[in-house]
């Protein structure tokens, strides 16, 4: 009988963490909710659809970068935030999905002829869609059961995140008529995160031997 209360008392951090997780998810979705509210109330400028679409794409890229920053933060700064990586990855996926949905529903107004043309002829949109598709299996296998079931293959599969990053970077850069400073900064950050991994690879191999 005494076991039950003791258990909850012994693990206050676990309980706190359990509460924290939904709060962080809600915070992560706040930019989308806020933008949607502004858009629905005609507060998002003269071209609300485009503004909303861009906000979603930008946050997808931000969360993708954040999820990729977890490992370098641990190895370089010694701070372990690995328990937040799944959340950041899933938020990146959620924003990418909303970005695509906005493009199809609000921007194209479900004009599938344009969609077909875009996805067969235009690298700008092909790269964007490729990034989204690369994130799909990652989101689908983000649960603990998949991690256990896939074993080492889980890590192999999740290297698709680099495909997503590179495709999303190209899409981001091609979205503007000129070289856009913000896009260059974001893509540059992604490049640094990639380079950090490449730089680490030989050291890793050496240790394994």
């Amino acid at each position: 009988m005494a076991a039950t209360p003791r258990k909850t008392q012994a693990n206050p951090r676990a309980k706190y963490r359990k509460l924290l997780s939904p709060v962080l998810y809600l915070a992560g979705l706040a930019p989308a909710v806020w933008s949607f509210w502004l858009g629905a109330h005609n507060q998002l400028g003269a071209d609300p659809v485009r503004s909303f679409e861009h906000v979603l794409g930008l946050w997808a890229f931000r969360f993708l970068l954040a999820s990729l920053a977890i490992t370098p933060i641990r190895t370089v700064l010694g701070v372990n935030l690995v328990r937040y990586r799944r959340m950041l990855g899933l938020l990146a996926f959620a924003y990418a999905a909303m970005h695509v949905a906005t493009y199809v529903a609000l921007d194209l107004r479900f004009d599938f002829a344009i969609l077909y043309g875009d996805l067969t002829k235009r690298p700008f949109l092909i790269f964007g869609m490729l990034a989204f598709i690369a994130l799909l299996p990652l989101a689908a296998t983000s649960n603990t059961r998949s991690i256990r079931a896939l074993g080492r293959n889980w890590q192999r599969l999740h290297r698709l995140v680099y495909v997503a990053l590179i495709a999303a970077s190209l899409h981001f850069l091609m979205a503007f008529k000129t070289w856009h400073m913000d896009a260059l900064v974001y893509v540059g950050l992604g490049g640094v995160l990639l380079l950090l991994r490449l730089a680490r690879a030989p050291w890793r191999r050496a240790r394994r031997v």
């Binding site: 629905a40 659809v49 485009r50 609000l106 921007d107």
Partner: peptide, 13 residues
């Protein structure tokens, strides 16, 4: 897309 044709759901293409 017709700019200013009305918010999220009213914007025409």
């Amino acid at each position: 897309r017709v700019i200013g044709s009305g918010g999220f759901f009213g914007e025409r293409r």
